[in-house]
Amino acid sequence: MTGDNTVRNNLVKDEPDLASMGLRERKKLIRLQRIVAAARKLFIDKGFTTTTIQDIAVEADVGLGTLYLYAKSKEDLLVLVFKDDILKMIDESYAGIAPGEPLLDQLMAFFEGHISYHMKDQTLSRTVLKELSFSTTEQRRKDIDQIMNSTYAKLMKLIERARRDGRVQKELYTGTMAWSTFALYYHLLQGYLCGFHTEEEFRKSLRNALAALLD
């Protein structure tokens, strides 16, 4: 079981160093990659609700017992499948921010990357966000923590840099501000994905809310 967890953690790397791994570990990593690829395909093509664990096992050509070594539930597997995509999106959103711009514009640029990502498949995004909101297992908590830690780290860097450069006049508590900005975005994103706001209303409300927070 420990070996499976080690291999599972290696998946967060874009290109695992297979040469440095033993034969047993390589086989486990390849099996995990097959499971993740099968789950991703079925979640996208068939939908999360109608896809079963058995479907994924068959698609990945593994037994149910083997699959459960990597994910305890379909919900845990969903988060595992899309975690790396989300982490990559967070990094790319941060990298695309223009330096020296007003903090409000930088925050909007950061969240714009998130918005674009979730607009690609809104039905699946609703399901992913639901599972990200409820960490009912240790495995899911670890995956969610990794996503949130990356998000807050980027937001805190933006806020700290703006404070240091004198682009913010208001006294800000970096951690609280990072949490508050993400909470506003996340709340409005849920409303948009559930059909309570149009895309235009979503962006306008987010900008206005962030502006009020910074004033």
Rank of each mutant, 00 (worst) to 15 (best):
T2D: 07
T2P: 06
G3D: 09
N5F: 12
N5H: 11
N10L: 14
L11D: 05
V12K: 08
V12I: 15
K13D: 04
L18T: 10
L18K: 12
R24L: 14
E25P: 04
E25I: 12
R26V: 15
K27V: 14
K27S: 14
K28A: 13
I30Q: 07
L32P: 00
L32D: 01
Q33K: 14
I35H: 07
V36L: 05
A37D: 14
A37V: 06
A38F: 07
R40G: 13
K46G: 03
F48V: 05
T50M: 12
T52L: 15
D55R: 15
A57I: 15
V58T: 15
D61K: 07
V62R: 05
V62H: 09
Y70M: 09
D76V: 06
L78H: 02
F82P: 00
D85K: 14
K88S: 13
D91Y: 13
D91E: 15
E92K: 10
Y94S: 09
G96L: 09
G96W: 03
I97M: 10
L103Q: 03
D105C: 11
D105R: 15
Q106D: 03
Q106C: 06
F110C: 03
F110E: 04
F111G: 02
Y117M: 08
Y117D: 00
H118Y: 14
H118F: 15
D121V: 02
D121H: 08
Q122Y: 01
Q122N: 02
L124F: 08
S125I: 11
T127E: 11
L129W: 00
T137Q: 05
R141D: 07
K142F: 00
D145W: 14
D145Y: 14
Q146H: 11
M148N: 12
M148H: 01
L155M: 06
M156F: 02
R161I: 04
A162Q: 01
A162D: 02
R163C: 12
D165V: 12
D165N: 11
R167S: 11
R167F: 13
K170Y: 02
E171F: 09
L172A: 08
L172W: 08
T174A: 06
G175M: 07
T176E: 00
M177G: 01
A178W: 12
A178N: 04
A178G: 06
F182Y: 02
A183N: 03
Y186N: 13
G191N: 08
G191W: 03
Y192R: 00
Y192V: 05
G195K: 06
G195I: 11
F196K: 04
T198I: 11
T198A: 03
E200N: 13
E201R: 04
K204L: 05
L206E: 04
R207T: 07
R207L: 08
L213W: 06
L214G: 01
L214Y: 07
